[in-house]
Each structure stands twice: as structure tokens, then as C-alpha cells.
């Protein structure tokens, strides 16, 4: 009987040495996906490098647009963003200014639709039907169809050049583990762009992560690096009193 893999084999190595290598090839006019919900689970190091690179006219697909001095707000301050595709953008004065003055194009998308448009790109679905937004301005100009007595809107998958995601732990094979609600859009964006760049708080040796507990398999990630530092800013600090 033939045996399978009766030899040494190397895992595919996705590790890059730093954020500069991770962002090689990112250019002006590209479409970028960025994970995170509010400031939770955002790719802080990649965003800082996007600012450094000074690229312009980018389209950003991200649930939110950061705050004035953190997250995608940093790119907005620098006027690097041409268009934002988001579900909620309320926490950013510079965003408001640019939107009202017409400098910034904004495409508001229902949150579940935004997540699914990413996931569809990852999963190879060109489009899907959702009930979200039917009968509202979100559905204007889009194909609609009835299924089981209910109306749905046809939404298409995103096409992006780069996806920037942030995980808690990862390994050189590109496997990712997220923590808490910092997971959010990050796994949906992995493999949804031509190149997915994952930054992690801790890069562990291959073999250390339990294969049973990988949230995103390495196949969806092209480059991985350990972020230099994480501020992990809290947007709304709410606490309860001790009795």
C-alpha cells in the first residue's frame, strides 16, 4: 500500500519581519479592507504604516471610521481616504467635515450586509440576497426578489486589493486566534482581498496553537507579523460600582 507523506514537509511560511514588509505593494487608489468594530480589534500597526506610506485616494471598507486621533481617523486627518464604506461613522468630527464638504465619499451599508459582502468575497460567492434594507434607500437601484413571501435585495461581494486584520495570536502558517469581541469583522475579511495581512499581538511558533481552536485557518492569510505595540484604546469606558 502507498503511504501518504512519508517524508519531511515544510509548512508554508507567511511570516514577514515587520510592518514595512507586510505592506509592500500597497499603493494609492487601492481598495482596502480593515477589520475592527469601533476601536476594538483594529489593525493599529498597519494603519500607522498606511499613514507613513502617505498613499492617497484609497477606498476603505471598514465597519467604522475611527475617532479623530486614532484608528482610521488618522488616515482621514491626513486626507488619504477618497471613499469610506461603513455601517456607522458617528464618532469622528474630521469625517463629518470631509463628508459635508464633499471631499469624502461615503457608502453606508447595513452592518450584517457589510460582513456578508466580505464573507462572500472570501467564500467565492459573487452575490447574495438579504432582506436587510429592502424598501429603504439602501436598496435603490439594486435587484430585488421574493423568496418565501419575503422581499430580498441582491448584494454583491466586495473586491479589495488588501485586507488588514488584527488577531490576538497567530503563527507563521497564518493561523489566527482572536480574543473577545476584537474578533468582529477580522475573520470575515481574511481571504476576502487579493492579499490579506494579519498583525498579531503574539506570534507563536508553528505547532503551538491547538488546531482544534484555530479561528481562521492560515490559507486565508498571505502575510503575518507581530505588531510592535498595541494601544488598544477604549472608546466608551463603562464600569459598575462595587457593592
Amino acid at each position: 500500500m502507498n503511504s501518504f507523506l512519508n517524508k519531511t514537509i515544510l509548512m508554508i511560511n507567511k511570516k514577514v519581519n515587520n510592518v514595512q514588509e507586510a505592506l509592500a505593494g500597497v499603493k494609492s487608489n487601492m481598495t482596502l479592507m480593515l477589520g475592527g468594530f469601533g476601536l476594538c480589534g483594529i489593525p493599529e500597526n498597519s494603519i500607522a504604516e498606511l499613514v507613513n506610506l502617505g498613499i492617497r485616494n484609497v477606498t476603505c471598507i471598514s465597519n467604522n471610521a475611527g475617532v479623530d486621533d486614532f484608528g482610521l481617523g488618522l488616515l482621514l486627518q491626513n486626507k488619504q481616504i477618497k471613499k469610506m464604506i461603513s455601517s456607522y461613522v458617528g464618532e469622528n468630527d474630521e469625517f463629518e467635515r470631509q463628508m459635508l464638504s464633499g471631499e469624502l465619499e461615503v457608502e453606508l451599508t447595513p452592518q450584517g450586509t457589510l460582513a456578508e459582502k466580505c464573507r462572500a468575497a472570501q467564500a467565492g460567492f459573487p452575490a447574495f440576497y438579504t432582506p436587510a434594507g429592502y424598501g429603504t434607500e439602501v436598496a435603490e437601484g439594486k435587484e430585488t426578489r421574493e423568496f418565501n413571501g419575503k422581499m430580498h435585495v441582491l448584494e454583491s461581494a466586495y473586491a479589495a486589493d488588501f485586507a488588514f486584520v488584527k488577531a490576538w495570536k497567530g503563527d507563521a502558517a497564518g493561523n489566527l486566534v482572536f480574543k473577545g469581541t476584537a474578533r468582529n469583522f477580522n475573520p470575515c475579511m481574511c481571504g476576502a482581498a487579493t492579499i490579506t495581512v494579519a498583525e498579531v499581538e503574539v506570534l507563536v511558533p508553528v505547532g503551538e496553537l491547538d488546531p482544534n481552536n484555530i479561528h481562521t485557518p492560515g490559507i486565508f492569510v498571505q502575510r503575518i507579523f507581530q505588531g510592535e505595540k498595541y494601544e488598544k484604546r477604549i472608546e466608551q469606558r463603562t464600569v459598575r460600582q462595587r457593592d
Partner: peptide
């Protein structure tokens, strides 16, 4: 909500509250 000092930036709700 967490007790003061126990807030975790990685655990928030949709209102972005810890």
C-alpha cells in the same frame, strides 16, 4: 459592565461600551 479596573478593551458591546 466590569468593575472599575477590570475593563478589557477587547470586550465591548455594540455601543462600544466595556
Amino acid at each position: 459592565f466590569p468593575f472599575e479596573g477590570e475593563e478589557d478593551a477587547d470586550i465591548i458591546n455594540a455601543g462600544k461600551q466595556t
